[in-house]
Amino acid sequence: MLQVPIPEPLRIVEPKEEVTKKMHAEKDYAPIWLQLYESIIKYGKVTIATEYPCMIEGRYVMNPSPIPKFDNPKLHNSECLYLFGAGREKKIYAIPPHTNVESLAFEDIPFEPENFAGKKCRLCGSTNTYLDEIFDSATGERYYQCSDTSYCKEVRSR
């Protein structure tokens, strides 16, 4: 179960709820794709780190916030039910188990999650989690540790 600050993936491109509802109904996701394209034009790659939009069962675009795009592939065909809640907007949405979840990507520029090859959590040693980079200004050293602190704790307690 995840708490989501902005559940509407189209909010960034359209402020009106009535319009976003219509856009979902008509599968009008061009503005979301445009966001990705603009990032490619400006920075040469898609720089969205969190709230990376996903296409669910080839029909609806969803905001998987707050998870980093590193974890987007874990939503695909998952064994568990994912619940996303936005208290302020009184909205709950879900990804049922075994659902097709595809991070949006252009045909010629594949989806690219963060790459932590060769790095591991300094606390639990995990190599399969999203790692926060911590810079120690006193020593000048860079550390990596799990962003998901409860998972990190669980691994350490095993």
């Binding site: 061009a30 794709w33 445009l34 394209y37 603009e38 034009i41 252009f106 520029i109």
Partner: peptide
């Protein structure tokens, strides 16, 4: 992107 917006809306997904 202004030009691409039209192309995306027409269905292309090739950047």
């Amino acid at each position: 992107s202004n030009i691409a917006e039209k192309i995306i809306a027409a269905g292309s997904r090739n950047a």
